[in-house]
Simulated assay, not measured.
Amino acid sequence: MLKKVISISMLMIGILSFSGCSNKTEGNTYIDMIENKNTSVKTLFLAESQAPEYPTTKGDYEFARLVKEKTDGRINIQVVTNSELGSEKDTIAQTRMGAIDFTRVSATPLSNYSKIMTVLSLPYLYRDEDHLWAVLSSDIGQRAFNDIEKVGLVGLTYYDSGARSFYNNKKEIKSVADLSGLRIRVQESDLMKSLVTSLGATPTAMDPAAVIQALAVGQIDGAENNVATYVSSSQYNVAKYYTFDEHSRVPDILVASKTVLEGLSKEDQEIIKQAAIESSDFQRKEWKANEDTMYKKMEDAGVKITKLDQAAKEEFKTAVKPVYDKFGADFTDLIKQIEATK
C-alpha cells in the first residue's frame, strides 16, 4: 500500500507541476487518492480523458457501479474525468507502473506497445460496425489483449468509439482528389500521418483542445474524428463539411494494471472482468443514442453531410495501400483473417 501511495504522490506532483498548480488540479481528487480512510472499502481509480457526460465515460461509470454492486461495496472505483490524471499516453504509462488502477484509452496509443493494436487501427479495414464487433469478439480481439499483457496491461473489454471521418471548412469531399492540399489535423500517430499523406493531404499533429481555434483562424483546413467529438467540441460550427468516409473504426479499450489486478483475490479479479464486459453492452447503447443526437444537431446546424457509396470507399482504400505496406507488412495473415471474419 505504501508503494502505491508513493507512486500516486509522485504522479500528483508531476501533474501539478505540469499544470502550473491550477486551482482545478489542486482539488479533492488527489487528496482522495492518498487519504482512503475507510479501510473496509478498497478504492481504485479509473483515468478518463473525456467529460462526465460523454458516452464512453458513462461506460466507465457503469463499470464502477457494477463492481461496487457485485462486491457489496467492498471495491469502490472512482472515475477521474477530463484528463485530470494526464493524457492517454501518460495514463497508460502510469497504469503499467500500478500508480493508476484502470484507464480507458483508444487503441491508437496502445500501438506503442503492441503491433497488433496497430493492425486493428488500419484504415478502411472493417466493412461496417457489425464487422468490427465480430472481429473484436473473436480470438483476434483476445490476441490483442494477450499482446498488451506482456507490458503490464490487462485488456478488460472494448468500448465503441464510432467511425472517424474527415471534415473541413473549405469544400465538400466526394473523392480522394478533393482532399489534395488540405491541411488536416491528426493525432500524434505515425499511422494517422501516413493515412492523410497517402490521400494527398498534409497532416498536422495537434492537441485536441487546440483544433477548434486552429480551424477558426485557418491554421488547418480540417480534421478527422467521430461525430460525437465533432459536435460536442463545437467544431461543427467552424467546419461545415463532413464526409462519412469512415476511414477508421479504432476501438476504445478499458485497461487494468496487471500489478493491481494480481493483488486482488481471484474472485474479485473475475468480478472486475465480468463487470467490464457487462459495461461494454451498456456503453455501446449509450454511444448509439448519442450518435443519433449528434447527427440531428449536425443537420440542424446546416452541415453539408456527404455519404460515400461503396465505389468511392474502394477508391479511398486503394489510395491508402502504402499504409498497409508500411504498418501491416508483418501481419498479412492477420489482416486476411480480419477481412474474412463474418
Rank of each mutant, 00 (worst) to 15 (best):
E62H: 15
A214C: 08
L261E: 07
H131F: 08
G302A: 13
K150M: 05
N112S: 03
V186C: 09
V135A: 02
R249H: 11
V176G: 09
S7H: 12
R284I: 10
K115N: 15
T293R: 14
V80Q: 10
N169L: 04
A47Q: 05
D60W: 02
I77A: 00
I100M: 01
Y61W: 02
T229A: 12
S7K: 15
E48P: 01
D325N: 09
V217N: 15
Y158M: 11
S49E: 12
V238G: 08
A209E: 13
Y54D: 05
G162P: 07
S279I: 11
I253L: 13
D245P: 09
A93Y: 11
S83V: 03
M192N: 07
I277W: 04
D281T: 12
S165W: 00
P109T: 11
A340W: 03
R249S: 11
K89G: 08
A93I: 12
A340Y: 02
G20I: 07
M192C: 12
S111T: 12
T202F: 03
G162K: 08
E172Q: 14
Q219F: 01
S87N: 10
D221Q: 00
L334G: 07
Q283G: 15
K115G: 06
T157K: 07
S280A: 15
N38I: 09
Q142S: 15
D252N: 14
A47D: 12
N23K: 15
I253V: 14
M10N: 14
V105N: 03
A134S: 09
V196S: 01
S234K: 12
D268P: 13
K313A: 09
L46Y: 05
G14S: 04
I140K: 14
I305S: 00
K273N: 11
E149Y: 02
D281W: 02
V41R: 04
N82E: 11
D292Y: 02
T341G: 07
N76C: 14
M10T: 14
K115A: 06
I338G: 00
L215A: 04
